[in-house]
Design a protein around this nucleic acid. Structure first.
Lengths: 257, 257
DNA sequence: ACATTATTGTAACATATTGAGACAATAATC
DNA sequence: GATTATTGTCTCAATATGTTACAATAATGT
């Protein structure tokens, strides 16, 4: 079985021949066999932590975005390329966190259905039904800067709150859980928060990111004191929100423009 | 290029036909292509942190142990199998920490030499000269329980202090550095120390493990207080070492026999 | 204008946690 | 019985964190 998100690699061409779309598919010879990557793309909408999930039309199958590694490119480049195709963004915070390689992570029937529903040659793409290992990554992006493009692909792609995920294919649920766990562990160490917010933000927004990632409420005063003591924040002008109370300062992370 | 440690998979048979050894080699069809794993096997000799390094005879090439993943086995099983073949041990503490996938991690010339020096068919093993991704793992073992077997293999395998490593093939140096970095990060979180010591140990031994991993001296009193406060240690009888001073207690980790 | 309201920034104090040093206990040796 | 090196624990200072309190303030209502 493959790893879910093959279609990242497909280039859809909107040619209408006898009313059908044709897909320029990926060649077996160009990519490393039995290996894929998957992406857990996190975003923060101001309240909740969300991730991007694909839905394959006519199948009801949900999966993480992912793709293959070309024989002539590095793993890192393959992932960055896929991420750019999905989100349109470059220079995204990206972290590889685990390679999933169990034998049970496969689902040839589901894969077959997806190929069929998209009018792909089953013989030519039989290699996609094989067993796949997947190198899982998570990415952190600014929710507001992205508008994932569902229309140019046969599958739709949407944000889902991590608390309200649909049932995902294969072991993708486990991949998400692991990503979240690693993200939590890296929260302090790697200043993860900076990649989920606009360049300027209030202390409250930053705290909300922390709370969304950790899944728990934090004490306001302690949080503020601790983050200021870290010395990584730069204070800017106040933000007047037009509300009947004191206006908060805006902050940015030092070293980020 | 491959990932270094293919020979873990070779089964050497000591048949003497015209004075030469013959190797039962691994079949291309049985393993996943362009994918390997590498092992950073840590041990602690009481003073220094050490790792197991291979040397290929007649080449002066040093590399990490590693191997391939069979199409019919999980990644985890492949690694555990390789680890057992190298050390003879089962139930070893094992942690996957990164997949290396750059294009520059290859060295077809070196690989060719290794194949030639071992009398392997270059045509049949040409796939080993290709580009390889490698899923890197580290293992923690009790130094005294292991006697790596150099004689049954064409390559020797020996312990090297992490401060005195020979020049390693390809990106294996980087793999070791990364392993050490991850090990340090996991030191508290995963009670790593327990896997490098015999089941009963003194507080001093435990501190020496911590110091060897972190590469710095720790304060004795603080260390002792902190580890006792964690509540993971069980105190046993005293250890009389025949020295002219107070005998230390022996400890074990709770939940480890 | 002036009180009201909600939120923010920070101070103050209590409560851990850690750093650093001191010291008694002890197992062998002299 | 004194000497020696090491161990286990205590104390006190320095830091960090939990908790509460409160003044400052930007808009609104009167």
């Amino acid at each position: 079985m493959f790893c879910g998100l093959i279609f990242l690699f497909f280039i859809w061409e909107k040619r209408f021949v006898s009313g059908k779309k044709f897909i320029k598919s990926i060649e077996r010879e160009d990519v490393i066999q039995n290996l894929a990557y998957d992406l857990v793309i996190f975003g923060f909408n101001g309240k909740q932590l969300k991730i991007l999930v694909l839905e394959y039309h006519n199948t009801g199958l949900f999966a993480l975005p992912g793709g293959f590694v070309k024989k002539s490119e590095s793993l890192e480049n393959a992932v960055k390329r896929g991420l750019k195709e999905r989100t349109g963004l470059e220079n995204i915070y990206l972290e590889q966190f685990r390679t999933f390689g169990s034998l049970s992570r496969s689902n040839p029937e589901a894969m077959k259905r997806i190929l069929e529903e998209n009018g792909l040659d089953l013989i030519k793409h039989e290699w996609m039904l094989d067993r796949f290992l997947s190198v899982a990554h998570y990415a952190l992006i600014n929710y507001d800067e992205v508008s994932p493009e569902p229309d140019s692909l046969s599958d739709s792609i949407n944000w889902y709150s991590i608390n309200e995920l649909p049932t995902l294919m294969m072991d993708h649920r486990e991949i998400v859980e692991t990503a979240l766990q690693v993200l939590r562990e890296n929260l302090e160490k790697k200043l993860v928060g900076m990649n989920l917010l606009p360049s300027k933000f209030t202390m409250k927004q930053l705290q909300q990111v922390y709370e969304a990632i950790l899944g728990e409420k934090l004490r306001r005063t302690t949080f503020q004191r601790r983050l200021l003591a870290m010395g990584v924040l730069e204070r800017h002008e106040k933000l007047f929100q037009g509300k009947a109370h004191k206006a908060p300062f805006l902050y940015s992370f030092k070293g980020k423009q």
